[in-house]
Computed example of a mutant assay.
Amino acid sequence: MNKPPSRRKKVIPVASGELKPATDSAPENTSGQDNPASATITVTAVEVTELTEEEQSLRLQLERQVERAFLSAGQALMELRDRRLYRSTHRTFEEYCRERFNYSRDAAYLKISATVVYENLQKFLPTIGRQIPMPTNERQLRFLAKAELEPAVQADVWRQAVEQAGNKIPSGRIVKDVVDRIRERTKVPNPYHVGEICILLPKDNPDLRGKAGYWGVVSHVGEYICTFQAWDGDCTVKIEHLKLLELLDEDCQFMQQLCVRLRQLHQVASRDSSVDWLLQGLGKQAKPYLSSLQAKLLATVEREYKIEWRQQK
């Protein structure tokens, strides 16, 4: 004879959170009092106290310190570089930044360039009518610094970027969009021509560090850039980094030929270190002539390394 299935006791939740077996005789309690879904939750209100004037002033002061931290770092790096305060322990500023702060060259110079842009914004942004929020880190100024725009244009870019961000501090991407629009609108044709003699203006371009005052020959002209031939090699630079020397045709030809002579000497791998002094001196003398002594020194060194030179006409 089959045994009838036994009835299992039903388990229902109670308000205390414990499991309680229900007996067969006790009816299920479906009232809201024992239903967790309808339990009453008591929330204690927390009173938010207003800041005192002293606390509000302290908060503003600390916020400004946070916002200006990158500015202080850039100003410090600039002074360390310009006064060469690293020279007692390091040969170059780049080595010093890498070993002392773990900054790459690009990171260090970005902080410096961003500081210059920030100071330009302080000077050229309008202060009448409303307060325009200022940058809080160098990433927001990365593209503005690299664009190498005039200070007043930099301020206009930042103002437009703030408006595009809803009158808040814009991201670097928004700043880049505004920079691209302005550069497209103010596109200027390249004024240089192949064969012209120019002087390098490094500004804050780390790739041109140490080349201030170098003269050279323009060997290629692009839309916004030129290839520049100096005594120690070629480099591609933006037109903002060049200054044209106004020369007569014969003077221009003399400097073109002098550049070739200096480059030939620089290519001598076994040259004496004193030759570099001569090359550096003549490589910064942006004049279409040599003194009698300079001409003799250059000719003597060329003979020493068996370099034959014939003046081209």
Rank of each mutant, 00 (worst) to 15 (best):
Thr236Gly: 04
Ser274Lys: 15
Leu298Ile: 02
Glu223Cys: 02
Arg139Phe: 08
Arg81Gly: 00
Gln164Asp: 08
Leu77Thr: 01
Gly222Trp: 13
Ala165Asp: 01
Glu67Phe: 06
Lys187Cys: 00
Lys168His: 12
Lys296His: 12
Ala155Lys: 12
Val275His: 08
Leu297Asn: 11
Glu119Gln: 09
Ala22Arg: 15
Asn167Gly: 02
Ser16Asp: 10
Gly74Trp: 01
Ser6Asn: 10
Ser57Thr: 09
Thr92Ser: 09
Lys20His: 14
Trp309His: 14
Leu293Asp: 06
Ile199Asp: 03
Ser270Thr: 08
Arg130Pro: 03
Pro36Met: 02
Gly32Asp: 10
Leu242Gln: 07
Ser219Trp: 04
Ile197Leu: 10
Gln312Trp: 08
Phe143Cys: 04
Leu71Val: 01
His220Phe: 12
Arg261Gln: 13
Gly129Asn: 05
Leu200His: 06
Cys235Gln: 12
Leu279Gly: 00
Leu282Met: 07
Pro36Lys: 11
Arg8Val: 01
Glu246Lys: 15
Thr115Met: 09
His241Ile: 00
Ala107Asn: 02
Ser38Tyr: 14
Trp215Ala: 05
Gln131Asp: 03
Ile307Thr: 05
Leu242Asp: 01
Asn167Glu: 10
Cys198Gln: 08
Gly210Phe: 11
Leu201Val: 09
Gln280His: 13
Leu51Cys: 00
Arg100His: 08
Ala212Ile: 04
Trp158Gly: 00
Glu302Tyr: 11
Leu51Phe: 08
